[in-house]
């Protein structure tokens, strides 16, 4: 049983305050979903937990089973059991996913023998053409293929807690179903804890959410059960955007953040 604990997390990018005291607790087997309008700080939260350069933590803490993640290098956080499926997976020319998995296993003190079979098995599970595994990481992959590639790696690395930063964006309906049900299976079979960031309820058709958190302007303004996602899909953010904020978010006005481009 593992727990990721975020408490009082305040993060700046340059001079701008992005996160203003975020509290969260994600334990093994749980699925937490963060929803919120553009610019609310959702990606900042996922990046800062994983240690992407460019963010300044000004207050608060992030721990995994009591271990201070913020004091660790990114790769050490991954080795401690964290995984980030990126919103825009980086292209790494000339580097194969297999070589990366092999180095990760080796650093963990695990035998990398059989990593290629693991990759192939994970690819098969979500209908990811295993020929893509031969390519350089994310190079010449479509947006959807990149997300499936992230899911394959998640399956191979078996972290304790996975952050999924808009895993659903760029995925067609079939791929979304395959990826989200793979993650759901991991929450049951491997007790994977999930922190999913999404705009759309459709990720939650296969991936069963336990908790929904609404992030607006760097703060979680409301938490609740899956019914909250349904309400959001119906009514939008208007109710939350005005709560505790005098300059109601410009990004909320005029556009419907729940307008699903695939529907």
């Amino acid at each position: 049983m593992s727990t990721l604990t975020v408490s009082g997390l305040c993060v700046n990018v340059g001079e701008t305050e992005i996160l203003k005291g975020v509290d969260l607790e994600v334990s093994s087997g749980e699925v937490h979903v963060i929803m919120g309008p553009n610019g609310a700080g959702k990606s900042t939260l996922s990046n800062v937990i994983m240690g992407r350069p460019g963010y300044e933590v000004v207050a608060g803490s992030v721990t995994l089973d009591g271990v201070d993640l913020l004091a660790l290098e990114t790769w050490e956080r991954a080795q401690a059991g964290m995984f980030l499926a990126m919103q825009y997976p980086t292209e790494v020319p000339g580097v194969s996913v297999e070589s990366v998995m092999v180095e990760s296993f080796t650093a963990a003190g695990l035998s990398p023998v059989g990593v290629d079979q693991l990759l192939r098995a994970e690819a098969d599970r979500i209908g990811f053409d295993s020929r893509f595994l031969e390519r350089a990481l994310n190079v010449d992959l479509s947006g959807g293929e990149k997300k499936r590639n992230e899911t394959v790696q998640l399956g191979v690395l078996r972290p304790k807690i996975a952050i999924l930063d808009e895993l659903d964006s760029g995925l067609d309906i079939d791929a979304l179903r395959a990826c989200s049900s793979r993650v759901e299976a991991m929450t049951n079979e491997n007790q994977l804890g999930v922190l999913a960031i999404t705009h759309y309820n459709r990720l939650l058709h296969e991936l069963r959410a336990d908790h929904i958190h609404i992030l607006v302007k760097g703060s979680i303004v409301e938490s609740g059960g899956p019914e909250l996602a349904t309400e959001l899909e119906r009514d939008g953010y208007a109710r939350f955007a005005t709560a505790g904020s005098d300059d109601a978010s410009a990004s909320v006005d005029g556009i419907d953040p729940f307008l699903d481009p695939l529907l």
């Binding site: 994983m50 240690g51 992407r52 350069p53 290098e73 990114t74 790769w75 991954a78 080795q79 995984f83 980030l84 990126m86 997976p89 980086t90 292209e91 790494v92 020319p93 000339g94 580097v95 070589s99 990366v100 998995m101 180095e103 990760s104 650093a107 963990a108 350089a136 990481l137 790696q153 690395l157």
Partner: peptide, 26 residues
């Protein structure tokens, strides 16, 4: 590129080596 590899649990020096090897691979 380095961050991406590190986020998979690859130690920094190895991530850098892989990125440079990849850069040469073409």
């Amino acid at each position: 590129q380095r961050f991406y590899l590190e986020s998979r649990g690859v130690p920094t020096p190895i991530a850098e080596r892989l990125v440079v090897q990849g850069f040469f691979s073409d």
